[in-house]
Design a protein around this nucleic acid. Sequence first.
RNA 1: GCCUCGGUAGCUCAGCGGUAGAGCAGGGGACUCAUAAGCCCUUGGUCGCAAGUUCGAUUCUUGCCCGAGGCACCA
Length: 513
Amino acid sequence: MPKDTFYLTTPLYYTQGDPHIGHGYTSIAADVLARFHRVTGDGKVHFLTGTDEHAQKIADAATAIGKTPKQFVDDMLERWKAQWQALDISYDQIIRTTDADHKAAVQSIFARLRESGDIASGKYEGWYCRNDETFWVESKLIDGRCPNPECRRPVEWVSEDAWFFKQSRYRDRLIEHFRANPDWVRPQSAYNEMMAILEGGLEDLCVSRSAVSWGIPIPDEPGSTIYVWFDAICNYITAAGYPHDLARFEHLWPANVHLIGKEIARFHTIIWPAILMALGLPLPHLVFANGWITMGGIKMSKSLGNIVSAAELIERYSVDGVRYLLLSQATYGTDFSISDEQMVRRYNADLANDLGNLVQRTLSMLARYRDGKVPSPSRTSELARGFESARDGASTSLHALDFRGALGWIWGRVAELNLHVERTKPWELAKRGDDRALDDVLYELCEGVRWISALAYPFIPTTSEAIWRALAQDGLPGKFWERELQWAKLAAGTQTNVPPALFPRIEVQDAVS
RNA sequence: GCCUCGGUAGCUCAGCGGUAGAGCAGGGGACUCAUAAGCCCUUGGUCGCAAGUUCGAUUCUUGCCCGAGGCACCA
């Protein structure tokens, strides 16, 4: 009955448009975390992702191409799924906000909050942008137009009865929670920003829309629908079974982490916890807002035409290449820039030269000197301790969502093994006929490679599996770390083979510099 | 306009009170198991600018400049 599963979520992706690598980045981070938790501890993980499919913009986009909204979002979903598949995202569940269960659950949540008085009727008067489905205060308008730079359409004055979520009731409790849990929103910059908003005061949130038909109908009030953000944000509990499957819900909730992009931090760290407080539910342990991938420091946007898709990157660097390059580029949470030149360099250096070549040279020497059979070592390797601290360091880093730090620990061992080859010079041992020393070196190189396969699995699952199989190992690489990552677990006599190049070098035509 | 974050070697980024670090790139060298990879040595920085606090500041404070972002569409 108690919570016993590591529950993590991505945002619900808004299906008005196609996915780009920024969305993929959040999904990759979530996937690495999910895979890490599957191969450590008791391995119980639930990884939720999904799509946000309501709102007027989607209905309009559908109409524009002659589809019904439902057909439109069905088609969009396939495109998002294709991206997730291409990036090897191992989600356990997809929730769509058009799912019947979700709709019923949101209606039930809405009704319940209305009963408790947390959602109350009021009158909304103000300037409304139909395109953005957003109310604006007069001071924000620019020449009587929507202040959103990508909209700038004329706004209209509306006055209507509406439902309000009384989030202002929870301001003090929210502040208290922020103070008591200074790590619950990360990175620090997001925490600061949200805390400042809270201290500045909270207004109640209008959660009904009378002019939007493509949405979840408000109970007993068929004319209007629930505000799309209220609908969407509830997915984290409706997907877990609230309120229709409480037995399941109790295993999952509260979520261990919501991974989001920084622009939606407010919804996840103010509005969402206020809703949970109103429902009497515990809050998620952590909301982690990642930064943006920029192109030379500039945000990707349609208007600039600098959108990069996952497919383009995968074609050039391979899936594992993309996963590695994005997560190793910068500390998770900060913005960072990418460029082809930079990525090619690091792909060649870290993946092709350091890791790929290490595996190749190790298994080639084993094939050449021992017919591919893992020899029996005569002693415990001096490398063991370094690998054990890398395992512990990577684990600590991943628990803290420090993906870059974890990769640093792992690649430190890659470097160590390459260096070890140079120090021990197996080819000289072979020439000299020093069989015992050669056996020891070959064994510890193979064992080190096995560890690297296991440690790197959450990041580069395809490659790790290829290494794991080359070493004739079964199952998921390194499942479970506590059992598999014991030095000298690799059995003597194992028959290995030399796999094709894991990361073929990318040759570049040198530009004039 | 208000708020947040950043400005550190050619590039991408760490560090954050005791006169600067990593990886890559560049230069030189010894080797050959390997994806001409790996290994060793090495060039390279007034830590955005200016004041202040301090015995001492890249590290703290203030102001300014530049960049990115948030301000209820958007990873």
